[in-house]
Design a protein around this nucleic acid. Structure first.
Lengths: 239, 239
DNA sequence: AAGCCCTGCGACAAATTGATACAAATTCAT
DNA sequence: ATGAATTTGTATCAATTTGTCGCAGGGCTT
C-alpha cells in the first residue's frame, strides 16, 4: 500500500475543491484539483492519478461522460459526487465505470472511507478490474461482505447491522487476534478521539455481541481484555 | 518469547529516544535509536531489527513514508507513535502497513504491552500471513489456546478464565520449568512494577489454582518456591 | 521449641465492564 | 420541510473482576 495516493478532485465549485483538497491532504493524500474536463485531462497526462473524485453535474459537461473517457486512458478509480436532487441512481454511475458514488452534501468521513475502499480495490489489480472484487471475509461460520456491507449468519440468514455496528465489526475482522483499545476502535470506526468515561464503545460492543454471539454472556468471538480493550479471536479467511 | 528482541526507536526528539531506550532496555530488550530516516536505514543495513517504533511526525520526512519503505526491505514490525494533535488520521498508519499505533503522550506500560504483542505476531511468521497461526499449547492434559484465549480441561470442558488469570497462565505456560518472581510476573501480565507487600500476585495464583489444580491444597502444576516466586512444572507441547 | 517470615486464602472494597433505559441525534418517508 | 422511526450517546445500576487487608498456617532459623 502506497504512502501517498494521488487523488484528483474534479468539480466546478471552487469551494468544494478547496474543502476536499484540504481535508484529503490533511489525511495523507496528495491532491490535485481541476474545474472541468480540460483541466482534468491536463493533469492526467502530466502525472499518474490513483483516484478521481468527480462531480456528476458540471456546466457544459457531464461527469458521466468524463468518467467513461477517463476509463479509456487511465487506471484511476472514480468516485462520483451526486447532488441531492439528482435522480441518477447508482446503477447508471456504476455501469459507466465508476467505482463508487456518494451524495452531496457529503460527510467527509464517509468520503474518506470510500476513497480508501476504492483505492484498496483498484490497487494491485493489474488489469482493468471492471469486476469489483467482492470482498467477503469469513469467520466462525459467519460471512461479512465488505463491499455490500452485509453480514450473513452461519445458517445463511442475513443479519441486519447498523452503520456503527458494521464499522466496528469491520475494524475487528480486518484486525483479528489483536487487542484493540477503545481509542483505536473509536478512531477506526469514526475517526473520533476517545476520552475516559466515554462508554459508547462498550455499548456498541454489547449491541454487537447480542447479534453475533451465540451466548452474549459468554462471548467467544469478541473477548474483553480488562483494562485494555477488546479482542476479536476467530481466524478470518477470505472467500 | 525471547528476551532479546531488537527494537529500533526512530524519533527526532532525543528526550523520547532516551526515555524509550531506557524503559525498554530495562525490560529486557536490545534497543537502538535513530533520529531520522537516514540513521534508521543505516541501522537496518547493519543488523537485523525485530521491531521499529516510529514517530509519525518528524521534520522533513513522514513516519508513514518511512514505514512503507521499511516494509519493502525488512520484516520488522512497526509501531507508530502519533501526536495527540495530529490531524492526520491515525488509521492511515494501519492501512499503510504499520502493525499498531499508539497515541502520545504514551503510557509506557501500554507501549510495552503492544511491543510484546506485535513481536509475538510478527515472529515466526515466514511470509506475510493474514491469518495468525493458531497457537495451542498443551500441558498436563490441559489445552491453552493463546489466540482464542480459551482453556480446556483434560475432560474437554471449557474453563472460563478472567483476563488476569489468563494472562498469568500464559506467562507461565510460555516459560515452563522456570521460576518466576513476583516482579517478573507482574511485569509480564500487566507491565506493572512490583513493590514489597504487594500480594496481588499471591492472590491471583490462589485463584488460578482453584481452577486448574486437582487439589489446590497440594498444587502440582504451579508450585511455590518459597522466598522467590512460583514455578510452572509440567512439560508444555505445541499442538 | 519459640519466634519470625512467608504464603494461602477468605472477606471486603475499589475498579472495570455489561446491560438497560432514556434522551439526543440522525435518517427516512411523506 | 415536517414528523416518525431508527440509530447512537449518556446515565445508571448490576455483575464481574481485581487489589488490599487480615489472620491462620506452615516452614525456617536460632
Amino acid at each position: 500500500m502506497t504512502e501517498t495516493a494521488h487523488v484528483l478532485v474534479v468539480d466546478d465549485d471552487p469551494d468544494i475543491r478547496d474543502e476536499l483538497q484540504e481535508y484529503l491532504t490533511g489525511h495523507g493524500f496528495r491532491v490535485s484539483t481541476a474545474e472541468g474536463g480540460a483541466a482534468m485531462h491536463a493533469v492526467l497526462e502530466k502525472e499518474p492519478v490513483d483516484l478521481i473524485i468527480m462531480d456528476l453535474k458540471m456546466p457544459g459537461e457531464s461527469g458521466l461522460s468524463l468518467t467513461s473517457s477517463v476509463r479509456k486512458t487511465s487506471k484511476a478509480g472514480v468516485i462520483i459526487l451526486t447532488g441531492t436532487g439528482d435522480d441518477v441512481d447508482r446503477v447508471v454511475g456504476l455501469e459507466i465505470g465508476a467505482d463508487d458514488y456518494i451524495a452531496k452534501p457529503c460527510n467527509l468521513r464517509e468520503l474518506l472511507a470510500r476513497v480508501r475502499s476504492v483505492l484498496r480495490r483498484t490497487r494491485g489489480e493489474g488489469g482493468a478490474g471492471l469486476e469489483v472484487e467482492a470482498e467477503c471475509l469469513q469467520f466462525a461460520g459467519w460471512t461479512l461482505d465488505l463491499s455490500e456491507r452485509r453480514l450473513t449468519s452461519p445458517d445463511s440468514a442475513e443479519v441486519p447491522l447498523t452503520t456503527g455496528e458494521f464499522n466496528m465489526l469491520e475494524a475487528f475482522v480486518t484486525r483479528p487476534k489483536r487487542v484493540l483499545n477503545r481509542d483505536q476502535i473509536l478512531d477506526l470506526t469514526q475517526g473520533r478521539d476517545w476520552s475516559p468515561y466515554d462508554r459508547s464503545i462498550d455499548n456498541l460492543i454489547s449491541r454487537l455481541r447480542q447479534k453475533i454471539e451465540a451466548d452474549p454472556k459468554n462471548p467467544q468471538i469478541i473477548k474483553t481484555v480488562r483494562g485494555v480493550g477488546y479482542l476479536f479471536t476467530p481466524a478470518v479467511s477470505k472467500k
